[in-house]
Amino acid sequence: MRWLTLIPFLLMAFSPSTMAQEPLATDLSEDAVAITSDFNGKDLLLFGSTGDRRFGAESAEPLDVVIVVHGPEVPMKIWRKERVAGVWVNSQPVTFENVPGYYAVATNRALSDIAAEDYLRRENIGADNLVLVSVEDVSLDEKTELREAILGNRGEAGLYQLHEDAVSFPDGRLFRSSIHFPSNVPVGDYRVIVRLFQNGMELDRSYSVVTVGKQGLEQQIFSLAQDYSFFYGLGSVIIAMLAGWLASVAFRRN
C-alpha cells in the first residue's frame, strides 16, 4: 500500500504549472516505528515535492534538499578513561544536558556545497553544529574534545548518520530518500525537518513527526518492569521457579 502515498505527488506532478507558488510538500511512508519482538531496525521512505520549483530546470539554479531527523534529547554522561595502577578506569564524568539520542542528515550532495557554513551553524544543521550544553564547568578545549567523543560514539552506534548522497530526484519535482532507524534506536518523538535550498538560500521547509515506541508484548513487559517493578521482579522469580520445576519433571520421565 506504500505506493498509495505517491498519488498526491503524481497528481502534483501532472497539475498545470500555471498555479501560484506551491509550497514544499513531504510525506513519510509511515509516521511511527513500532519496536516489536522481531524488531531489527527499520527504514522509512520520505517523499517530497518541490512544488513549482523544478530540479534541474534549465533556466534555474539547481535545487537542493536537506533532511534532518532529530531524535529525543536526553542527558548524557561521558567519562574519560584513565590508567590507574595498570587498569583503565572512568575518571570524573561530565554531563551534557541535551544530546539527541538519534540524529541523521540526508542530502542530495555535500552539505558544504548546499549552504554556507555560517547558515548551517546558525540553523544547527549537521551533527557538528549541534549545540551541546554541559552541566559542569569545563574548559573550551575539554568541551570540544568530549563533544567529539560523544559524536564519535553515537556515530559508531549507528545513531548519528550523515548521508550526503541519499536524496534522489526521480523527476523534476519529486524527490525521495530513506531514513534508517537501527535496532538500538531510542524511543520517543522524532522531528523530521526537510529544507529546500537554491543557490545557498533556504526557500522553504516542512516539518513532520515520527514516533518510535515499543509495542505489544515488548511494551507490556517494559512498562511492567518500570511501573510495577516489585511485581515484575516477583513474577520473574515465580516464572523461573515454575520453569525450573517443569524442567526437572520433564527430564525425570526420560
Binding site: 519482538s37 518492569a225 517493578s229 521482579g233 520473574s236 516464572i239
Partner: peptide, 28 residues
Amino acid sequence: TASVTILHATNTQTVDIVLALLLLAGGV
C-alpha cells in the same frame, strides 16, 4: 538469587525476563 532478582528489578530495572527464559530453555 530470588532476593537479588527482586532487588535488581526494583532498584535498577535490569531483569530481562525474555532473555532469562531463552537462557533457561537452552540451559535445561
